[in-house]
């Protein structure tokens, strides 16, 4: 979530009455930082260390080698298809849940969380059962010469399923907190549904939306479990980057495995940087829109009858 507490915690710190003893602060800091260094920073550094252990040439060769390039291309393609689709689905679902009342709303909200609660491997198996050669639609698919499992469509489906909640989950609380007042104002002023969404709802959630897309993208590129079941791991054809790393590792080709892994790690770092930037922008946006002049009394949310 977007951090809005820094200002408050500074005030909290400065206040003698609410300040903890120094040793509490330093113990907690040491504990969390050493844990952080040992379990997060060290492994990350070791990925790059292992990747470059045999020198730049081997590194470059391992990531430009034919099957590695195919894996990279496939991963980008998968993200390129599944992220925009999830953007549309997520926005539609969030808009529906946050701004409208209908029967079964609770059920839909629960379903959105389903991908988070189901193990990715199970997700892969589910698709096998439905679209696999012996699955429900298997015979029909074979008849029409369509390949889902062990092909790109299967990987896309599994990825979409796994990354579905990110956009919706990010938007629903944001949209709910903003209420319907602005949308109602727009409708009364003569805007139609599409105009209301495009000019009023969307600009208000754009940072949250970008945040959701970034998380969704990171997960789409890094997904292993579900994809490994449906991909079939055909080298150069249905191998994504995480799968490729695993295969190389199992073949004791550590330098190449870590080289490809380092690309994924780089992607994670870039994602983190963008994410931080978005958070920063969103929180300054938030502060700007919630900066209340001194002569205004605090607003309380209106309670609907």
């Amino acid at each position: 979530m977007i951090s809005r507490t820094s200002h408050r915690s500074t005030r909290f710190e400065r206040n003698l009455a609410t300040r903890e003893a120094p040793w509490v602060k330093w113990t907690l800091l040491t504990l969390s930082l050493s844990f952080f260094a040992l379990f997060l920073i060290l492994p990350l550094v070791s990925v790059f260390f292992e990747a470059l252990r045999k020198g730049w040439e081997v590194y470059l060769l391992s990531i430009t080698e034919e099957t590695a390039l195919a894996a990279i291309k496939l991963t980008v393609l998968i993200a390129f298809i599944s992220v925009p689709l999830n953007l549309v689905f997520g926005v539609a679902a969030a808009w529906l849940i946050a701004k409208h009342d209908f029967r079964g709303k609770q059920l839909l909200t629960t379903f959105i969380d389903l991908p988070f609660s189901v193990s990715p491997v199970i997700v892969g198996l589910m698709y096998m059962l439905v679209f696999g050669a012996n699955g429900w639609f298997g015979a029909w698919l074979v008849e029409h010469d369509l390949k889902v499992i062990f092909a790109v469509p299967g990987i896309v489906l599994a990825t979409i399923f796994v990354t579905f909640p990110f956009v919706a989950r990010e938007l629903i609380p944001l949209m709910q907190a903003q209420g319907r007042d602005e949308e109602e104002a727009a409708v009364v002023l003569g805007a139609n549904g599409w105009q209301t969404f495009w000019y009023v709802t969307l600009p208000n959630v754009k940072w949250g939306l970008l945040y959701g897309v970034i998380l969704s993208n990171a997960r789409a590129m890094g997904e292993f479990g579900a994809v490994s079941v449906v991909s079939g791991k055909i080298r150069g054809q249905t191998n994504t980057m995480p799968l490729h790393v695993e295969i190389l590792y199992n073949e004791y080709n550590f330098a190449a495995a870590f080289a490809v892994a380092s690309l994924l790690a780089l992607l994670a770092l870039v994602t983190l940087v963008i994410k931080t930037w978005v958070e920063h922008r969103a929180s300054s946006h938030f502060n700007a829109t919630h900066m209340v002049p001194a002569d205004v009394n605090t607003l309380s949310p209106r309670v609907m009858p």
């Binding site: 007042d181 602005e182 104002a185 009364v188 829109t289 209106r302």
Partner: peptide
């Protein structure tokens, strides 16, 4: 064609 003024203004923040 009604004009509506809300208690909490409902101005478009952005």
């Amino acid at each position: 064609q009604v004009g509506f003024v809300f208690q909490h203004y409902a101005l478009f923040k952005h």
